Amino acid sequence: MSRLTDLIAQAKAKDATLGNELEREFRALANRRAFGLNFERHAPESVELPGRPIRKGDKVRVLPPRGSTDKGDQRLWKVNRTYKQDGKRVADLTLHEAAEPEAQTVPVEDLIVVAEFRDYIYPGLVSTGKVERGGDKPYHTVINGENFHALEALTYTHRGKIDVIYIDPPYNSGASDWKYNNKYVGDEDVYRHSKWLAFMERRLQVARQLLKPSGALTCSPLSPRL
């Protein structure tokens, strides 16, 4: 703030009218106060699309060796072309939006397509089986998929129809004894909590669209580390 004040003072010394206008706008911004939960709304979230065929122009990640528990190379690569080499389908890749160019050729079976939030995705639900033993009783549906896209798909069929939503999300605590990945953002990232809040906000906003006016959303108790 002090640096901005000094710059405004310098501007006023050279051009009083311009300096006064800058000071007025600065004061208006400085007087704004955000209430409630405040955080940076990060957008670089991405989702992997297992089973999606690899095509030219796709953004992909290189999977870690089979059987490995490592996250592997998290960088994004762009597919320039695919072709057969020694009887195996491979892809020529270049590092996506990199300052320093980098290229490699990788077997297609070792790649997975990645979509970022700025990319268009048209989610759909495909039935993989069912168990019928309740007769005319109400039935349940289990959706296995990336939760944001599953919620988006449900807005076409269940908007304003849900009575209760119960969520038990990963809390980014880094605990390793969970059945799913509980380390959404690394410990070394200074924006780790902010990114987690942005991750949650996107999903809660869609979930709210599914609720009836009298509906309720319940969240499992939060970690004390948040």
Score class of each variant (00 low, 15 high):
Pro65Phe: 05
Ser223His: 08
Ala198Lys: 09
Pro213His: 06
Gly215Asn: 02
Arg61Tyr: 06
Ala34Pro: 02
Glu132Asp: 13
Glu23Phe: 00
Asn20His: 12
Leu18Thr: 06
Gly19Thr: 00
Gly51Glu: 02
Met200Gln: 15
Thr157Tyr: 12
Gln205Asn: 12
Lys71Ile: 08
Val142Trp: 11
Ile162Ala: 05
Arg61Lys: 14
Glu25Cys: 14
Ser127Gly: 10
Ala198Phe: 07
Pro221Asn: 01
Ala115Gly: 00
Gly174Trp: 05
Pro138Phe: 05
Lys137Asn: 07
Arg52Gly: 01
Glu23Ser: 00
Asp136Val: 06
His193Ser: 09
Pro224Trp: 05
Glu100Arg: 15
Val60Lys: 12
Asp92Ser: 15
Ile121Phe: 10
Asn20Glu: 15
Gly135Gln: 07
Ala98Lys: 02
Phe148His: 05
Arg3Cys: 02
Thr69Leu: 06
Leu217Cys: 09
Trp196Ile: 06
Gln104Leu: 11
Lys212Gln: 08
Val190Lys: 10
Arg118Pro: 00
Arg203Lys: 03
Leu18Arg: 07
Arg66Met: 10
Gly215Trp: 03
Lys78Asn: 01
Lys183Asn: 10
Gly67Asp: 08
Arg202Thr: 00
Leu37Ile: 13
Pro170Lys: 13
Asp163His: 11
Arg66Lys: 13
Leu226Arg: 02
Leu93Asp: 07
Lys179Asn: 10
Arg81His: 04
Arg52Phe: 11
Arg3Val: 06
Pro53Phe: 05
His149Thr: 13
Lys195Gly: 09
Phe117Arg: 14
Gly87Ala: 03
Ile121Asn: 11
Glu201Asp: 14
Leu204Tyr: 08
Ala43Gln: 12
Ile121Gln: 14
Arg192Thr: 04
Arg208Ile: 03
Glu102Leu: 04
Ser176Lys: 11
Val190Ala: 09
Pro170Asn: 15
Pro64Ile: 01
Val79Pro: 05
Tyr83Pro: 02
Leu197Gly: 02
Val60Gln: 10
Lys14Asn: 04
Lys84Asp: 13
Asp187Met: 10
Asn181Ala: 08
Ile54Val: 14
Ser220Met: 08
Arg27Trp: 08
